[in-house]
Design a protein around this nucleic acid. Structure first.
Lengths: 227, 227
DNA sequence: ACAAAAGTGTTAATCTTACACCCATGT
DNA sequence: ACATGGGTGTAAGATTAACACTTTTGT
């Protein structure tokens, strides 16, 4: 077979993290190429004998030294044929969430220029990565309301107020504490631990834990999460 | 830049149609290649200087002579590196809906072997197209409940009973006629015409029409469709 | 004792569900 | 007059939304 085509395939990941009440995105400073010095998403070219998912896992490891908590395909960007000025490149973008941003970004050799950016203070991004970021934000907001992905941004044990805060930060709306708690607890997929938060003023808060098995069982039985 | 990569990029479309109370999928009989004689989705290789969306429009025209009513990216299949036995190919799959299947599939020269198949009588499909079909069915069912895409499968003017039937066929569950009508009419995005269905037994049914402008206005004002 | 954040219930309003009979037409 | 599919309303139940005071701790 003779296919006259010269298109390169890349993968890019937009990784969200949440700490201190703020949503962050992981960016890498470009060392080479036409976008040298600009910040960009984690990503790179796919190898000929490598699956897309392996490629994105490899890039996450090589460029940032991280293993994410949630990863799914976001969208394939290939309508702007000049999105990479050097040649025709299409990018299969992935959407990722990570629990603890404190993972040492410098753990890996290639990762000297990996940093978390608050989404309110993003620098100008390379290529069409601003567009990818926007699509990802929409996905994050939508998904937060119908899948329990908030737990993939919080530590294993978390405060109810953190969860509530995460929702009101990302969805950008106020949430009634009582109704929220009632609803979430009503799902019966998160459970109390016997631990309490320390080192904060005010009444100490209970720590909770998400039980994914219970959630999976509920889904199997036709349950549908919805905030 | 020197990228050592030899991956080809294809686009494939899964096109759904709805007639006589049944859901159909458009398939093309392969004339050449390792899958000769097998039925496959509309699709082909992307040209180096062609956007993905142009590529899929071109294939729909060349292989089936159709223009679809709704088209969006579905998923990019690129994890099975042997999905095409000849070489590494990734496929950006599109999801399409068409209003009137009676469009003449033979209108175009290349389309001699294009046919609609009832989804209950699908033949064995080429490549990983069975997988693509399954992902598309899930998307169709999910989307039907939160976006008014049912109207993209019906003629411009349709009976309420057709709409109801479409929903109960695709979602595979019974629908209460009164509640359904009340809900849909309550959205105020479909309107009565002054025409009636002819040539059917029983009381003649009013024809209705979907008003996309009204729908768009509602969405802009924060409305969320949900069946 | 006061400042700070956590924890908790009730009521009204809205939305959803279940359900059965009459209507308009063709034969 | 009967067969066929179209059209319509109401009441009970479930869900959601609004709302404020008490508890526990540290200083």
């Amino acid at each position: 077979m003779n296919v006259e085509q010269n298109i390169k395939v890349a993968v890019d990941a937009i990784v969200f993290g949440y700490t201190e009440g703020k949503l962050h995105v992981l960016l890498i400073k470009q060392k080479y190429g036409p976008m040298r010095g600009r910040w960009a998403l984690v990503g790179g070219f796919v190898k000929t004998s490598e699956s897309l998912i392996d490629a994105i896992h490899r890039e996450l490891k090589e460029e940032a030294g991280i293993v994410v908590n949630f990863l799914e395909q976001l969208y394939t960007f290939g309508d702007d044929i000049k999105r990479d000025p050097r040649m025709r490149v299409i990018s299969v973008a992935y959407f990722a969430l990570i629990k603890n941003e404190s993972v040492d970004l410098k753990a890996d050799t290639d990762a000297e220029d990996a940093r978390w950016f608050n989404i309110d203070e993003l620098p100008q991004l390379a290529y069409d990565h601003q567009k990818i970021y926007e699509v990802a934000m929409n996905r994050l907001r939508a998904k937060l309301t119908y899948q329990p992905i908030g737990f993939d941004l919080l530590p294993k044990e978390f405060l109810f107020s953190d969860l509530e805060n995460l929702y009101s930060t990302i969805l950008d709306r106020e949430i009634d504490r009582r109704n929220f708690r009632k609803k979430i607890l009503g799902f019966e997929m998160i459970e109390e631990t016997d631990k309490f938060a320390e080192g904060k003023p005010g009444r100490p808060a209970k720590l909770f834990r998400f039980n994914r098995q219970k959630y999976n069982r509920l889904v199997r039985d036709g349950f549908h999460f919805e905030i």
